[in-house]
């Protein structure tokens, strides 16, 4: 990856923490259940499949999650957002494989690849939860479950996470040019401070505006059928793999 691309990859990564503008086309329940099924499928694959079958299972879940997210946010956005994750898992995968070939690691390549694909499947499924369910809906859900304070904290955190990721990109550029390649870990200091300032600013916004938690979660939309069908395909595919594998 070109060094200049790292900062943009970080910036694009923030996209994965912002919910879609098209949420209203589907009901809350269908979106939430689809994201949950992706997570359940990842867990089932982890528990009941191993070897090449697990790689197939995780790849299948990742692809289905990416298809779902691209339905809501467009394919380009998702690909760009995933670059950072691919970059880091790629480095990890390469390191493991090389160390295995040199005899420093006892992990076999298949289990290393399976672990990598598990990260993708888990991340994309989790990302679905953030991109397919709005902050207000999360607040409403948690409120119904009786976690009123937690819903507030979670809402405010999710709200500002993309902004902090964008700051990270800017800090990365600045520190790299200031110190060269040697001291990139120093990015952490200004980021902690900016996060603190942002949190204080948010507290002021909370006093001024409060935080709206929606209790009205939508239960049905005609387009839900498509999402439920996709959920069934995900679950059936994974169950078939478990039965065969």
């Amino acid at each position: 990856m070109r060094r200049s691309s790292v900062a943009w990859a970080i910036r694009d990564f923030s996209n994965l923490f912002i919910y879609s503008k098209k949420l209203e086309e589907y009901s809350t329940i269908s979106r939430l259940s689809h994201a949950s099924i992706l997570l359940v499928a990842s867990t089932l694959t982890r528990l009941y499949l191993d070897g090449v079958a697990s790689i197939l299972g995780f790849s299948y879940i990742t692809i289905m999650a990416l298809i779902t997210i691209s339905m809501f946010k467009g394919f380009k956005n998702i690909v760009r957002g995933m670059i950072l994750l691919v970059f880091f898992t790629g480095i990890a995968l390469f390191t493991y494989l090389v160390s295995g070939l040199l005899g420093w690691s006892r992990q076999d390549p298949v289990s290393v690849l399976s672990g990598t694909m598990y990260v993708y499947a888990l991340f994309t499924s989790f990302s679905c939860l953030l991109q397919l369910v709005s902050i207000r809906e999360w607040g409403g859900l948690m409120n119904r479950l009786g976690f009123k304070n937690a819903s507030l904290i979670m809402g405010l955190t999710l709200l500002q996470t993309p902004l902090i990721i964008i700051y990270t990109s800017e800090a990365y550029t600045t520190i790299k040019l200031k110190y060269g390649n040697k001291r990139l870990y120093k990015v952490v200091t200004p980021l902690i401070l900016l996060t603190f300032y942002t949190a204080r600013g948010l507290a002021e916004a909370y006093i001024l505006y409060g935080f709206h938690v929606g209790n009205e979660l939508t239960k049905w939309s005609s387009r839900d059928l498509l999402l439920y069908l996709t959920s069934v395909i995900v679950l059936t595919g994974v169950l078939l793999l478990i039965l065969i594998g």
């Binding site: 709200l159 948010l202 002021e204 505006y209 709206h212």
Partner: peptide
């Protein structure tokens, strides 16, 4: 009274402008 602070991006309590304004109006 309403204070509009230095950093306008901290005034948002939803990611999308329409939702942010409407939610506040509802509240």
């Amino acid at each position: 009274i309403h204070v509009i602070g230095q950093n306008p991006y901290l005034h948002f309590t939803a990611h999308i402008v329409r939702e942010d304004l409407y939610n506040y109006a509802l509240r």
